[in-house]
Design a protein around this nucleic acid. Structure first.
Length: 424
RNA sequence: GGAGAGUUGGCAGAGUGGUCGAUUGUGGCAGUCUCGAAAACUGUUGUCCGGGCAACUGGACCGGGGGUUCGAAUCCCUCACUCUCCGCCA
């Protein structure tokens, strides 16, 4: 969420910038600032009363010590009224505070200057392309046919075991998954990311910290008996490592990565475009996460983009990098680059990575700050994350783009990981 | 799952219900000494929310929440977590 300070000091700026996201914040900002004033006034009153109370209590203690019990008892009488007043104001304060928080989480993050205004994905800005779209032979097939032909991924079996959107990877299909995960992690390590293996069930606080709760509650699978949520992305546990943490300026940027399965309910979003591996309830992903100094977080974002671009290039997939416009960028993000690879039999671009700078938006919720030598007070860090990469659509593109009449060729870089060079 | 013991500042570890935000040690930072360092000595050292240009100052925080009391780190209830023993188990 945005900081109260910013909303209070530069309300016009907030309103103006959020227009890029097609969000009219006028009313909300006004309400927040008004509530904030009420909150401060109430606190001033409460604090004053509490100061009086503290004083009286000290006096009473002193009187009892001096055996002046009568005086002490009459002093006690005075506290009763005060006590009631404090209790009442405390309730008022808590109420205002609660209202304020509930309004505060409704404001989206302010987009970066470079983010173009726009309605939807049609207004996104293509940054660059790489790789070559392969010319396939006449009998080319979409991946959902290929996986059946070679018996490497089984959707029906997954449906039997769990339900739609939970495929079973078999034989070379399973091995390809493992190979990709290892490849991605090794590449991440070369780029200086520290590998972590977090829990894939998280609690409510973690869900709130990265912004999945309360807004996107329906996106996550909820284990109600223990009130835990299956992670929709490793971003949640890996970023929440730094919840309520003050890090040293010298340790920045902190670069972590994790492989986890990811679970998404995707309620109501099933349709024509989501056949095969294009959209799943469970999939595998390697996520990179950075905790950065606000001064250079955009350099770090570029670094992450370069990292993802390098991996896709090594896999030999044609790709394009897109900077999302205001209408397409997420609630929490200040700037997002999407990576899409071309899937040559479906003849469409598939999103395989999304790399974002959240600036201090998540950090404010997480209460993750950094302290520098010259700083009087700790300040909020910037958090960034990106997929590097999500597997299913990469697999779809690999299968489709590398199909030949003899079988599916495995990219050079993956052969050592797979132990085979063709699926036939 | 059963029984018991815990949870205090970066860490370790005190704390008869009344100047306890909290003794002390250690670590961190600054200084003295030194060519430099170590050692020693001195000082300093939490976070959040208010007020103030500032010095400073009011309030809150001793796992979370609630309660008793004029007053709670200290007493009570509750939840969470940690440890030990037993049981179960990949």
């Amino acid at each position: 969420m945005l900081t109260l300070k910013l909303i209070q000091e530069q309300p016009e700026f907030v309103i103006e910038r959020l227009k890029v996201k097609n969000f009219d914040a006028t009313v909300l900002v006004g309400q927040i600032n008004q509530l904030n004033i009420q909150r401060r006034e109430t606190q001033a009153k409460v604090d004053q009363l509490k100061a009086e109370m503290n004083n009286l209590s000290k006096q009473i203690g002193q009187l009892f010590k001096e055996k002046k019990n009568d005086e002490a008892n009459s002093a006690k009488e005075k506290t009763f009224l005060l006590k009631d007043e404090i209790k009442e104001l405390d309730v008022t304060f808590a109420d205002i505070d609660k209202q304020l928080s509930s309004l505060l989480v409704q404001l989206p993050n302010i987009p970066h200057k470079l983010v173009a205004p726009g309605k939807n994905e049609a207004d996104n800005v293509e940054i660059r392309r790489g790789g070559e779209i392969p010319q396939l032979y006449d009998g080319k097939k979409p991946h959902w046919d290929l996986i059946q032909q070679y018996d490497i991924i089984d959707f029906e079996l997954g449906t039997k075991l769990t339900g739609a959107g939970f495929p079973v990877y078999k034989g070379k299909g399973a091995k390809l998954q493992r190979a990709l995960i290892s490849f991605f992690l090794d590449e991440g390590e070369k780029s200086g990311y520290n590998e972590v293996m977090p829990p894939i069930l998280v609690n409510e606080d973690s869900g709130f910290g990265t912004g999945q709760l309360p807004d996107k509650e329906g996106q996550m699978y909820h284990a109600t008996a223990d009130n835990l949520y299956l992670v929709p992305t490793a971003e949640v546990p890996v970023t929440n490592i730094y919840r309520d943490v003050i890090v040293d300026e010298n340790s920045l940027p902190i670069k972590n990565m994790a492989y986890t399965p990811c679970f998404r309910r995707e309620a109501g979003s099933w349709g024509a475009h989501v056949r095969g591996l294009n959209r799943l309830h469970q999939f595998d992903k390697v996520e990179i996460v950075q905790i950065a100094n606000p001064e250079n977080s955009y350099q770090q974002l570029d670094e992450m983009v370069a990292h993802v671009e390098a991996i896709i290039s090594k896999l030999g997939l044609p790709y394009r990098i897109i900077r999302l416009c205001g209408g397409d960028i997420s609630f929490t993000s200040a700037m997002t680059y999407d990576f899409e690879v071309y899937s040559a039999a479906q003849e469409r671009w598939l999103e395989v990575s999304s790399v974002s700078n959240f600036e201090s938006f998540q950090a404010n919720r997480l209460k993750c700050r950094y302290r520098g030598k010259e700083m009087k007070k700790p300040e909020l860090v910037h958090t960034l994350n990106g997929s590097a990469l999500a597997l299913p659509r990469i697999v779809a593109a690999l299968l489709e783009n590398n199909q030949t009449p003899e079988g599916i060729k495995i990219p050079e870089v993956l052969v050592p990981y797979c132990g085979f060079s063709i699926i036939s």
